[in-house]
Each structure stands twice: as structure tokens, then as C-alpha cells.
């Protein structure tokens, strides 16, 4: 290596006129020459740069941590769950619709059966008799109630006869006054 060239490069370096390649050249030169008294200070500085550049405190353990973090965030657990939830929703709606249709059809089919059912009686005639009996009992008790209501209607009649009576009296008075004239 030409020493003059190093001097020139160093001057350019302090004036900030070196290219990246020239700076790399200086670093390479000084890292191979540690005990050159002529450029001891410059050598120390460039070695400092070089060693700082090679300072790598983050090892494989750090890589593992990063990849683990990435793996954690990559698991699409949320998406799968939402998909299953959507399928669940659709299934629930279908279930409701199907069961609604099924039961209404079932209802419709079994309607005529219900009209033929006789409740607690097997024999239609007996059922008819029992119904008749029940209805008679109902009308009997209703009639007894009617008698009580008839007592109340006496008041009505009385009120009306009184009304009629006073109306007739007024007519008689008018007739009498006409006759006097």
C-alpha cells in the first residue's frame, strides 16, 4: 500500500471528501496495521469504527424470540373462530326454519284427528249424553239467575208506569183548560 495514498485519503477523509469505498479502504488498511507509529491515532479511530461495526450483541437467542413473536401473531386463530361462528349462525337459522316448517306441517296434518277426538269418552253416544247433561245443568243455573234478575226488572216496570201516569195526567189538565175556554 502506497503511504502517500493513505495520507491523501486521510486528508480527504477529514475534509469529508472521501467516497464510501475510500473510507472502506482506510478501514481495511488500518485494521491490518495496528502498530504503525505514524498513524497511531488514525489507526485507533478506524479500528474503533471497524470494531463498532462488528459489535453484535444480539445473537441467536434474539432471533428465536423474534421468530416466536412472529409465529404467535401469525396463528389465524381469530379468523378460524369467526368462520366457525358464521357456520354456527347459518346452521342455527336453518335449524329454526326446518323445525318451524316441520311442526307447522305436522300441525296441519293432525288437525282432522283432533276433531274426531272425544276427550275422556270412548263412545260418541255417551259423550253426547254427557255433553247434553252438562249443557242442561248450565242452562238450569242460568235460569235460576234469571229469576233474580227479573226482580230487578220490577223496578224498571214501576218506573215506566209512573212515567206514563204523569204523562196522562198532563194531557187531562190540558183538555180541561181547553174545555173551559
Amino acid at each position: 500500500m502506497d503511504y502517500n495514498r493513505i495520507d491523501i485519503l486521510l486528508n480527504k477523509y477529514w475534509d469529508c471528501e472521501t467516497t464510501l469505498e475510500e473510507e472502506q479502504e482506510l478501514r481495511a488498511f488500518f485494521s491490518s496495521r495496528q502498530d504503525d507509529a505514524r498513524w497511531a491515532k488514525e489507526a485507533a479511530l478506524f479500528r474503533y469504527f471497524e470494531e463498532s461495526r462488528n459489535n453484535s450483541p444480539l445473537g441467536e437467542f434474539f432471533d428465536h424470540r423474534i421468530l416466536e413473536e412472529i409465529g404467535k401473531s401469525e396463528k389465524p386463530a381469530g379468523k378460524v373462530r369467526s368462520l366457525w361462528m358464521n357456520i354456527g349462525k347459518v346452521a342455527a337459522v336453518i335449524l329454526v326454519l326446518v323445525s318451524a316448517v316441520y311442526f307447522s306441517v305436522e300441525d296441519f296434518r293432525s288437525e282432522p284427528k283432533i276433531s274426531q277426538e272425544l276427550g275422556t269418552y270412548e263412545d260418541p253416544k255417551k259423550a253426547f249424553e254427557e255433553t247434553k247433561k252438562a249443557l242442561l245443568m248450565l242452562s238450569g243455573s242460568m235460569n235460576s239467575g234469571k229469576e233474580q234478575v227479573q226482580k230487578v226488572s220490577i223496578f224498571n216496570e214501576a218506573q215506566e208506569t209512573i212515567k206514563d201516569g204523569t204523562d196522562q195526567g198532563d194531557d187531562k189538565e190540558k183538555k180541561e183548560s181547553k174545555d173551559n175556554k
Binding site: 450483541p57 444480539l58 434474539f62 412472529i70
Partner: peptide, 28 residues
């Protein structure tokens, strides 16, 4: 790039662990 980023972050923060946190955040 982790060590390069770490060295740069240390220049700002002056603290190794804090710089590591920053690098981790950047990479993620």
C-alpha cells in the same frame, strides 16, 4: 440487520435493553 439497528438505537437511547426492545418492535 438486527445488530445494525441495535447499534443505532443504542446511540439514541444509551441503554442496551431499551434498544433491544426497539429493535424487536421494528422487526415485528
Amino acid at each position: 440487520l438486527k445488530n445494525k439497528l441495535h447499534r443505532f438505537a443504542v446511540r439514541f437511547l444509551g441503554d442496551d435493553m431499551e434498544a433491544q426492545d426497539v429493535v424487536q418492535e421494528v422487526l415485528i
